[in-house]
């Protein structure tokens, strides 16, 4: 019964951690725009936090470069299980327009396992909210004991 309660609470009030890997800021400010009155992601009980240990969902924007890779892994490993990774924007999916640049590794899924991909350059706030709520469904479906993993 207690487990069920936690499960329910998690889906009703997931906390977000946002990390800008090496994005152009387009998706970042759209993530921030989600928190503000017009889109107001807080109506789903979602709060943006700064501490990875408080967070359930990791929003990653931008391509991964060699230096931000370490930070991303750091943040991901600090987050408690179960956790969810949402990659936002074309860059986070595949590297996008930057994929041929020398300091770009590629999409976020080259470093950590991604649960939800949100497309767009930049992704619209509606799409980001949709992606996060889609991820919440994954929370309810995910079996006990299955853990997200770093690659």
């Amino acid at each position: 019964m207690f487990k069920k309660l936690i499960q329910k609470a998690r889906v009703k009030s997931p906390w977000l951690l946002h990390y800008d890997c090496s994005s152009c800021n387009g998706c970042d400010i759209e993530v921030l725009a989600c928190l503000t009155p017009v889109y107001d992601i807080e109506r789903f009980g979602i709060i943006n936090v700064g501490n990875p240990m408080h967070a359930d969902i990791l929003l990653v924007t931008g391509t991964v470069n060699y230096r931000s890779r370490k930070v991303l892994l750091n943040l991901f490993n600090q987050m408690p299980d179960p956790k969810l990774v949402v990659a936002i924007g074309t860059c986070a999916l595949s590297g996008g327009i930057f994929r041929e640049a020398y300091n770009v590794i590629g999409g976020v899924d080259k470093v950590i396992a991604v649960d939800v991909y949100v497309t767009g350059c930049p992704a619209k706030p509606e799409a980001i909210i949709d992606g996060v709520t889609l991820g919440l469904n994954r929370f309810t479906q995910r079996k006990e004991g299955k853990k997200a993993h770093a690659r």
Partner: peptide, 25 residues
């Protein structure tokens, strides 16, 4: 260095018309 992508380099690879879209990013 956390956001360095090496974007100026893309101007050597892409057509100069396409670079308009690159510099937007």
């Amino acid at each position: 260095g956390f956001v360095h992508r090496g974007l100026e380099m893309l101007a050597h690879i892409r057509d100069f018309h396409q670079v308009t879209q690159v510099v937007e990013r």
